[in-house]
């Protein structure tokens, strides 16, 4: 039974750990490349700045995924798609896999560090490498991106992307809040916001003398230790009380028993088994005296040693003289 419980606990812990890693991957930014833009047949305004290019120098739509956790996780074997058919829950895993683009294993780039990102090109050319997907993003149409776990069944994240202005991207800015980033603010493979440690700046501006920090921190330190004090004060009191009650109960029980014995001795109803009644009464009386007067079960706990002059260690009391060491001739 114990082994079974251990195995179950281990499995639960393992599955939780696995799920935690995969669910930390979130779509972070999406960019739709409009190839017709520079071809002259589009009414849309052409992009003013060059877009992000792949290893071959080709511009393509791209999808950025972020590991939102503070530890490294593998994104290999996960699936990305824009095909809504995969939401059909009756579909088997192999059928789903055919509709999605798998992120291949065997590439160290798929190991994503804490708060780091990976960018995939949605160009339909998987032969170009790990970072290329087998589909393209539709230009001028809304679509939904889906990210599935390695089992092709568990949906990790999805985002609905409306029609984007040319050159703009759709980015997750703050938690799950998404917004369209203008052309000059698109940030492929980089954080969507430039990170500043605002906390330090804020403290520097609003608490230049450190008084607020001192008050807050000392408040927290005192709170922690006061809570511990209260808990152990009450607990200690309860423990003491319980011990005292137990002692009182024991005394009462013995007292009752002794009273009964005295009563029985007086009445002469006690079985004496050949012992004289006087002896028997004396034994009981002695026991009672010991109990009520001579016992030492309720001590003050204070040890005192009064210094008394004594000659017990006096050299003159030594019974033998110090041995003399004679040098051998």
């Amino acid at each position: 039974m114990r082994k079974l419980l251990s195995v179950i606990s281990f499995l639960i812990a393992s599955s939780a750990a696995f799920a935690q890693g995969a669910h930390d991957f979130k779509f972070n930014e999406v960019f739709v490349h409009a190839p017709a833009c520079c071809g002259g047949d589009s009414t849309a305004t052409c992009s003013k700045t060059p877009s992000y290019v792949d290893e071959y120098g080709q511009s393509a739509s791209w999808i950025e995924i972020e590991n939102t956790s503070y530890s490294t996780h593998e994104i290999r074997n996960c699936f990305i798609t824009i095909n809504p058919a995969v939401l059909d829950k009756t579909m088997s895993a192999p059928e789903r896999e055919k509709l999605m683009s798998v992120i291949p294993a065997g590439d160290p780039r798929t190991s994503i560090g804490a708060k780091q990102r990976i960018t995939f090109f949605a160009d339909g050319h998987t032969n170009r490498g790990t970072l290329h997907l087998n589909f393209t993003l539709p230009v001028g149409k809304p679509f939904t991106l889906y990210l599935f776990d390695g089992n092709a069944v568990d949906l990790l994240d999805s985002v609905r992307v409306e029609t984007l202005p040319v050159g703009s991207s759709f980015a997750r800015i703050n938690g799950d809040e998404w917004q369209v980033l203008e052309e000059d603010k698109v940030t492929p493979n980089a954080p969507n916001l430039v990170y500043h440690n605002d906390k330090i700046r804020e403290f520097k501006e609003k608490d230049p003398y450190g008084i607020a920090m001192t008050l807050m921190c000392m408040g927290v330190v005192f709170s922690c230790l006061i809570l511990l004090f209260v808990f152990f004060h009450i607990f200690g009191w309860a423990m003491n009380r319980a011990a005292k009650l137990a002692r009182v109960r024991a005394i009462r029980a013995i007292h009752d028993q002794a009273s009964k014995m005295v009563e029985m001795a007086k009445q002469g109803t006690t079985e004496t088994r050949g012992i004289d009644m006087e002896t028997y009464t004396a034994v009981i009386g002695m026991a009672l005296h010991e109990y009520f007067g001579g016992t030492h079960d309720l001590e003050s706990g204070i040890l005192t040693i009064n210094q008394t002059p004594t000659t017990w260690a006096d050299k003159s009391h030594e019974l033998r003289v110090t041995p003399q060491h004679h040098q051998a001739n």
Binding site: V221, F222, L225, I226, L228, F229, F232, H233, G236
Partner: peptide, 10 residues
């Protein structure tokens, strides 16, 4: 044994 001493630590 003497939890009020915690406050000195704080």
């Amino acid at each position: 044994a003497n939890p009020k001493l915690m406050l000195i630590g704080a």
